[in-house]
């Protein structure tokens, strides 16, 4: 023991890097939920791709727009979008629920209650959704 200490004197200790299994998250429910939540980002990226495909078709002509609508009605594409919708909803809910813990807002020296921050985000979500729906299909 003493030898060990002497040998290490003057050297910086090496970094401790424990080995972690690739599947460390499968054994516990909360870990699996964590990985599902993290995977939502893949469907956020898919949302951008899908939106850009829609806008590109709209920008071409009416025929291209109709082809996009036909493609989007393909059962496989609908299935992908149903899964994507479930994941972006998981993202939205977990994001809004966590935000009050990530940011502390003060007004006149008093902390705004976390509940208020959460509720204001849900209100913004409803407002944005209503405006988007009205602009796109409500007029």
């Amino acid at each position: 023991m003493t030898d060990h200490l002497v040998r290490d004197a003057g050297e910086r200790a090496p970094l401790y890097r424990p080995h972690v299994s690739r599947l460390w998250w499968v054994h516990r429910r909360s870990y699996r939920l964590f990985v599902l939540r993290e995977l939502s980002s893949v469907f956020v990226a898919w949302f951008v791709v899908f939106l850009l495909l829609f806008l590109r078709a709209v920008g071409q002509d009416d025929a291209a727009y109709q082809r996009f609508l036909d493609w989007a009605a393909n059962p496989f594409v609908i299935a992908v979008n149903v899964v994507a919708l479930a994941f972006v909803l998981l993202h939205a809910v977990t994001w809004f629920n966590l935000a009050p813990q990530a940011m502390v807002v003060r007004l006149r020296g008093r902390r705004i209650p976390p509940r208020m921050i959460m509720l204001s985000q849900y209100a913004a979500w409803v407002a944005v959704s209503a405006v988007v729906a009205w602009l796109l299909v409500g007029r």
Binding site: V44, L51, I78, A84, L85, W125, V132, L136
Partner: peptide
């Protein structure tokens, strides 16, 4: 910023363009 933007815009747009209109 992207977390907020995606949370606000992705659900309604995917619901309308990807599910409700195609069905």
């Amino acid at each position: 910023g992207g977390g907020v933007a995606a949370a606000l815009f992705a659900p309604i747009l995917l619901f309308l363009l990807g599910v409700a209109i195609p069905l």
